[in-house]
């Protein structure tokens, strides 16, 4: 049975739908990525699926339960969310940020149990940020901050993990590292991953399934082999590319076609 089912989802911010007619489902343990150009509605989609937007219609089922009828607390025990970027209104420490992931498992006034503490230490270890636990979040680099936010999501101890453009604002190497980390979570902790991204090559090796989003509607979905084609990339991203085989992984990879005006003239 699919762990997550989305049916005819339509959502916006109060002035018309940003995404419409969204249908897809995710199998337990799968890594699924929503790809699309900037402004295609990826962030709206990943928020709407969790019921974070006011103006939403359609159905979302998590493990067979209607998500829109669940309390926030119940949803937060099923889905953890790693947002895009982090606004620094107040400077919490890394430990305090990760502790927020445990709130949903605690009573209001209770302090941290031995299990809470163990879990928080584990996720900090897993993401290699234990040494930063007493640092203020504002003192960290973008890559470290992203890891801390993922650690918080893991502390929530949910079967589903959502990530909104985890590589945004990161250098190439850090972006790659984050995807390696997420893949490890899928493999070792049996997490089901839903992720949005605009960098196609970055996600191909990690995703079992892709969803192409354009102007708020799904254009195509399926395994990377079937979707990474010249015509689909042209259709969704409006870019002329060639598909090659990656020398190391043997997986498909897009390479941009640069037209040099001078060369074209010579050709004539």
């Amino acid at each position: 049975m699919a762990i997550l089912e989305v049916l005819n989802l339509r959502a916006g911010y109060g002035n018309g739908a940003v995404i419409d007619d969204i249908c897809f489902s995710v199998e337990r343990g799968q890594f699924i990525t929503v790809l699309g150009p900037n402004g295609s509605g990826k962030s709206t989609l990943i928020k709407a699926v969790q019921g974070l937007l006011q103006d939403t219609s359609g159905k979302v089922h998590v493990e067979g339960h209607d998500l829109f009828r669940m309390s926030r607390r119940k949803v937060a025990r099923m889905i953890a969310f790693v947002p895009q970027g982090y606004d620094l209104a107040f400077d919490y420490t890394v430990w305090e940020i990760v502790a927020m992931g445990r709130y949903v498992h605690q009573k209001r006034l209770s302090s941290f149990s031995a299990q809470d503490n163990r879990m928080m230490r584990e996720v900090l270890d897993l993401l290699g940020v234990s040494h930063l636990r007493d640092k203020k979040i504002g003192q960290l680099s973008g890559g470290e901050r992203q890891r801390v936010l993922i650690a918080r999501a893991l502390a929530q101890d949910t079967p589903l993990l959502f990530l909104d453009e985890p590589s945004a604002h990161l250098d190439l190497a850090y972006g790659l590292e984050i995807f390696r980390v997420v893949e490890r979570l899928q493999r070792e902790m049996k997490k089901t991953i839903l992720c949005t991204e605009h960098n196609i090559n970055l996600v191909i090796p990690y995703s079992q399934r892709l969803v192409f989003l354009k102007a708020g509607r799904i254009q195509a979905q399926g395994p990377p082999d079937a979707l990474i084609t010249r015509s689909w990339i042209k259709e969704v991203f409006g870019a002329d590319v060639e598909i090659r085989e990656n020398l190391h992984s043997g997986l498909p990879e897009i390479s941009l076609i640069h037209r040099h005006p001078q060369k074209e003239e010579k050709g004539r």
Binding site: L52, V75, A76, R77, I79, P83, Y103, R152
Partner: peptide, 15 residues
């Protein structure tokens, strides 16, 4: 503490 993370994040953390 959750609320100052922004409404979306606060909700996703169960608030």
């Amino acid at each position: 503490n959750l609320l100052v993370m922004g409404d979306d994040v606060a909700q996703s953390l169960g608030c």
